[in-house]
Design a protein around this nucleic acid. Structure first.
Lengths: 355, 355
DNA sequence: CTGAAAGCGCTAACAC
DNA sequence: GTGTTAGCGCTTTCAG
């Protein structure tokens, strides 16, 4: 008797559901409407080989008529992985990551993958949660930011055994593959260039260095170049808020009060450098002649003051799209590909300092 | 005989899979490890009521030990809807939408929903594809941009019968609920204010008006205010590329050559206004005394030239987070909520024109 | 409080 | 070419 099916249950449930959500259109409905089996319907809709042209038309027509939508959940359940792509980034108000995302979506365009994303706010715990959550959607691959993961996060990422691309940072160890650049080297290079241009009296202003590992690495590269040249760091102002134009303005004012003889301030990014420039304009300080301002990323905001702010130009969109393309390549490869790292070296842009 | 199970098949498949992906850890493995049934394991992991504390501990411990990750695909399949939230936006390089996304993720934080998103590039066909695709993940709700949808897109959105929030634009008809403001009214208001300040000789410079419906609505509001005041439009330069600082620079130069007596240029957004400002600085044109520049959105780039650019300040982050909160409210409501529209009126910021 | 059975909607594998 | 069967991994019944 327990082997006997009990139609009572499912009928009751169906009835309940019908009241709540009208009818849920499934593949079976398409099949019925087209007068074929569900398999033929399935194959027809997917344009599989081995279906008669007549049936393909019938099935697609039927699907359109009854407004069939398909169910990726069910389809993915029959496969080892879904066609979702997980994307984990620290922040979205910062344009840098918006650009990266843009590159990612461009590369994913029309490839049949849908991005699922999570924002970590530079918080390792949130990051872990987000990664775990996304992994439970069985994504075909993941793109995550940076190389600094706590062990337990690194572990689940490894154990997922799916293609993984770590972006933006190539300074640490990566798990599967990476696309980005060395922040330490980028700021080291920039600082050496500035020293070569004759700057001697350096200050540093940075935001969020405790949580933003990449900003911290830029700080480190800056200090290394200074140390190698035997130059002192005249003053340093750090803030733990996320960077913004207004903070730059405030901190620059403070720095110049503390050390009026500075001839160069290195900022952890362009936003704060732009804020500092606003202060300099008001305070009538000649930029860059008397004081050089150096940001990072080459963002619109820095470029909109032509020549005033020196910066390291990074191609975020390219990093995003390259990462996504690399990921797709690794996903579709018949066998796991060897580890790989693609570097996009930033371009030193001195602006008016060049002359 | 056909009723006889045929274990050969599944064993063969399992073996194959084992080679490819090692073992896939499922709930059953957790149950076995903990010495309980799958149901107890399921309930334990979800912290359901009616499970003994002892078993909860055993199950969670086991899950941790064998590195169980869970499978949202399977879990969602048993429910009418997944806990994904679909988000559809036109663009990501434009900071405006990055801010919106940021607000959305903030509001979704810790609520157990994961955003899935698609970018349309202002293309209705891509938009339709993206919407259809996301719907087939059976999201619990959707956030889409704007009110201008082609009929077939509007239809599938309606038929999905899930909570829907349309954002950024309240000018047209919305399907379920909306969070945003009237672009037409915003620019109408701004233009009237400018006229009241004595500006008489207006030009318009815009980008992407053909595809960006909201920019087009701002254009319309601007023209309406002009017409009402009986003022002529002295010149207009439109471009079909996506807006950028450099385009603004170019078009402003052209406009001022065509109509040197302009005393106010209205731009479709802040980027291009900032580009125009760069031109004015170079050409030594007093802004805003001789020429007022008016952008839209109140973005950092405009504010970084304090007072120079008049703009309508919009709170994108708030729109995003409000939209997401509203969506969650509608998702969790026991019964469908009535239609609802939340308006965030932009703030007119005249900058130095104020005086 | 726990377990067995059935089924979510789809597709891979086999049979016809 | 097309249909039948079984099963993806989980949860919702319902029976103990």
């Amino acid at each position: 008797m327990s082997a006997e099916p009990q139609p009572t249950l499912s009928r009751a449930r169906a009835a309940t559901r019908r009241i709540a959500l009208k009818k849920r259109v499934t593949l079976k409905d398409v099949a019925t409407a087209a007068g074929v089996s569900t398999m033929t319907a399935s194959r027809g809709l997917r344009g599989a080989s081995d279906v008669s042209e007549a049936n393909i038309q019938k099935v697609r027509q039927a699907a359109r008529e009854i407004g069939y939508v398909g169910n990726h959940l069910a389809a993915s359940l029959t496969k080892p992985r879904s066609n979702l792509i997980g994307v984990v980034i620290p922040n979205l108000t910062n344009v840098v990551f918006a650009h990266v995302m843009s590159g990612i979506t461009q590369a994913l365009e029309g490839k049949g993958f849908q991005p699922v994303f999570g924002v970590t706010d530079y918080d390792p715990e949130k990051e872990h949660e987000v990664v775990k959550n996304i992994l439970s959607w069985r994504p075909a691959g993941m793109i995550v930011t940076g190389t600094n993961f706590p062990d337990h996060t690194r572990l689940i990422l490894k154990q997922a055994e799916i293609p993984l691309v770590q972006i933006m940072d190539t300074d640490g160890e990566f798990i599967d593959s990476a696309v980005g650049f060395s922040h330490e080297k980028a700021s080291y290079d920039m600082t050496r260039t500035l020293i070569a241009k004759g700057r001697k009296s350096f200050g540093f202003i940075g935001c969020n260095l405790e949580r933003d590992f990449r900003a911290a690495k830029r700080h480190a590269g800056f200090l290394r170049a200074l140390a190698e040249a035997g130059l002192p760091l005249k003053c340093e102002f750090l803030d733990n808020e996320v960077s913004s134009v207004s903070i730059g303005r405030t901190l620059a004012a403070q720095a110049l009060e503390t050390a009026p003889d500075l001839d160069c301030i290195y900022f952890s990014n362009d936003d704060i450098a732009a804020g500092a420039l606003c202060h300099c304009i008001d305070a009538n300080i000649a930029v860059p002649d008397r004081l050089a301002l150096v940001g990072f990323n080459g963002m619109d905001i820095a470029r909109s003051f032509p020549g005033k702010i020196a910066t390291s130009i990074t191609d975020r969109v390219a990093i995003g799209s390259t990462a996504a393309s690399l990921l797709l390549e690794r996903i579709t490869a018949p066998a796991p590909l060897p580890s790989q790292c693609i570097v996009f070296e930033p371009i030193v842009d001195l602006g008016a300092l060049e002359g």
